[in-house]
Nucleic acid binder design. Structure first.
Lengths: 153, 153
DNA sequence: AGAAACAGGACCGGGAAGGTACTGTTTTGG
DNA sequence: CCAAAACAGTACCTTCCCGGTCCTGTTTCT
C-alpha cells in the first residue's frame, strides 16, 4: 500500500478547490461541493489553519482561504499538516521509542533515511497549483544515479 | 506519516540478513538473529515465498534462501510482496470501490497516478544489495524538471 | 519411524482512522 | 443590542486493519 490517509486525500481535494476559486469559502459549502461530510471538512480545514496553510475569517460572511499562493503550498506540506512529519519507517521517525532491534549498526536505517528524504523532497517540490491544474506534464521525475547495476524486478 | 507497515519493515530486515549470508536459514534461526517473534518471521517468509522472492526447502535441514541475487530483488518488490501493489491514494488503487467523489474529471487522479508511479519506480530501482550493504552513497535522487516555478514550502 | 522445518489456515486483541456531537466564541446584519 | 451564521475546540464512539499467536497438516532428512 504505502498509502496516505483518507483525511489527507480529502485535504488535497479541499485545498485544490480553494486554489481554483477566490474569496472565502465556508466549510459547509465546501462540504457540499466535494460531497464530503461537513464535520470532516471542518476538521481538516481547522488542521490546515493551524498549520498556517489556510486562513479563516469568522462571522456570518466568513470562510476559509488559502493563506498563500497555490504555487507556494506544496503537496508535502499538506500531507505533513494532516499526518505529521513524513516517516516511511519507524527508524526514520524522530521520536522512535523502539531504538531499533539491530542497534544502530545496521546499515538499513541510513538507507531508509535517504529514501525518506527523497520521497519527502519529491512531495515538497510539487506545488498545489500543479495538482489543482488540469494539464500537468511531468510532476516528478526520478533519477537513480547508481542504479546501473540495479536490475529492476 | 506515509509509513510502510511494520511487517514490511521486518521483511526488509529479514531479506537483508538472507542477502548477507549464504545457505538456507531456518525461520527460527532468523527470528533469533533479528530478535523478532518466530511466528511473525514465519508469516513474512511465507509471504515472500509466495511472491517468488525467496525459495524454501523443507525437511530437517531446510530453510529459506533468496530466490535470486540480491541485486535482482528490489525494495519495491519486497514492499509489494507484503502489502500489495503500491497505491498512495485510493484513486491510484486499481480496484477502488469508491469511484472517486469527483467523478473522473478531477485532475487530481492523474496527478496522483504520476506521483504514485514516481515513488513506485524509485523503490523498484533500489536493489536489496544496496540496502543490505553498509556504505551506500546515493540511493535515489529526485529531479523535478518543471519545479522551477515551485517555491518549496 | 521420528524429529525438524515449512505450509496454511483460523483467531484475536489493540490502536488508529474516520466520523459525530456538543459547546463555545466571533462577526455581521437588522 | 440581539439574533443568526460561521469558525474553534474538545470529547466521544464505532469500525477496520495491523500485528501477533496458535494449531494442524505436509515434507524431508537422519
Amino acid at each position: 500500500m504505502l498509502r496516505i490517509s483518507k483525511l489527507t486525500d480529502y485535504a488535497i481535494v479541499l485545498a485544490s478547490h480553494l486554489a481554483n476559486a477566490e474569496g472565502p469559502w465556508s466549510s459547509p459549502r465546501l462540504a457540499c461541493e466535494t460531497n464530503l461530510p461537513k464535520p470532516t471538512v471542518a476538521k481538516i480545514l481547522k488542521a490546515l489553519c493551524r498549520a498556517g496553510l489556510v486562513s479563516s475569517t469568522r462571522g456570518v460572511t466568513g470562510g476559509y482561504t488559502l493563506a498563500r499562493s497555490a504555487d507556494a503550498i506544496s503537496v508535502g506540506a499538506l500531507i505533513e499538516a494532516i499526518e505529521g512529519p513524513i516517516a516511511v519507517t519507524e527508524c526514520t521517525d524522530d521520536h522512535a521509542e523502539t531504538p531499533c532491534i539491530l542497534e544502530g549498526d545496521c546499515g538499513l536505517q541510513a538507507n531508509w533515511q535517504r529514501i525518506n528524504d527523497a520521497v519527502s523532497a519529491a512531495l515538497d517540490s510539487i506545488p498545489l497549483s500543479a495538482m489543482a491544474g488540469r494539464s500537468v506534464l511531468t510532476l516528478v521525475q526520478l533519477r537513480t544515479p547508481d542504479s546501473a547495476s540495479a536490475k529492476r524486478t
